[in-house]
């Protein structure tokens, strides 16, 4: 029973949405689903947020290693909830948007979240460098192909590519690195992308059917649970 109901729900909802694509009167169902999903996700946040609090309060209570940082996390979380729910410092009345310029909520976003986001994102520059180094050390044929293609595209996007191969006569202009980079992007790159994308389309059909038909049901838990 505990499994049958959810399996039936998945089956019915899945098939209704598949057929809605072909039945014009049912076409808006996908938007309705998105709305439902958005609403459910906020309710679920009570579980997620509650879990976050519980983990850090436990750490604090048991004085585990680095418990001091848990205090910061809890304080930050509660501070942001208060700033947003009560719209502290909002220029205007309660009806104005929570992220109105000048509000405490928006200021914290601009000067705390934004620099943290951008810096975390910018770390990618270092990680790209270390990943490139690792790829460079790889010895097999596949990795070499990857590296050559990456090198040509990289050079093709800089003036250096033209400086190195600019001397090649126009009749062989394809071998000038910027042109070669464009050709790689438009031909072999496109071929690989297509094979991957077609495969994904088929993989999604197969997995979705397994879920809708109840062949795959590991996510549903056990009857005795």
């Amino acid at each position: 029973m505990k499994r049958l109901v959810p399996l039936t729900i998945t089956f019915i909802v899945g098939f209704v949405l598949i057929f809605s694509v072909f039945l014009p009167p049912a076409e808006g169902l996908d938007q309705t689903f998105t709305l439902y999903f958005d609403i459910i996700a906020v309710f679920a946040f009570f579980l997620g947020g509650g879990n976050l609090m519980r983990v850090h309060i436990n750490k604090l209570r048991r004085q585990k290693k680095d418990w001091g940082f848990s205090v910061v996390t809890i304080a930050g979380f509660l501070f942001m909830l208060a700033a947003g729910l009560f719209k502290i410092g909002n220029p205007g009345d309660i009806a104005t948007a929570v992220d109105t310029q000048g509000s405490l909520f928006k200021t914290v976003f601009d000067y705390v979240i934004n620099p943290l986001q951008s810096t975390m994102y910018s770390l990618l520059a270092f990680f790209v460098a270390s990943a490139s180094y690792r790829a460079f050390r790889a010895k097999n044929r596949e990795a070499t192909l990857l590296l050559i293609a990456a090198f040509v595209i990289l050079l093709g996007r800089t003036p250096f590519g033209m400086m190195v191969t600019g001397w090649i006569p126009d009749s062989f202009s394809i071998f000038q690195i910027p042109n070669l980079a464009i050709w790689i992007m438009n031909s072999p790159n496109l071929a690989g992308q297509r094979a991957i994308i077609i495969g994904i389309g088929l993989g999604v059909i197969s997995m979705s059917l397994r879920l809708i038909l109840g062949v795959e049901r590991s996510y549903l838990g056990d009857d005795n649970a």
């Binding site: 958005d38 996700a41 906020v42 946040f45 997620g48 947020g49 976050l52 940082f69 848990s70 910061v72 996390t73 809890i74 304080a75 930050g76 979380f77 509660l78 501070f79 942001m80 909830l81 700033a83 947003g84 729910l85 948007a97 929570v98 992220d99 909520f105 914290v108 976003f109 705390v112 979240i113 943290l116 975390m120």
Partner: peptide
């Protein structure tokens, strides 16, 4: 990291709530 996690979790809850 602690600041980022706490503040951003609160931020997203508020945005989703409103």
């Amino acid at each position: 990291e602690a600041i980022f996690v706490g503040i951003s979790a609160g931020y997203w809850f508020i945005v989703l709530f409103w």
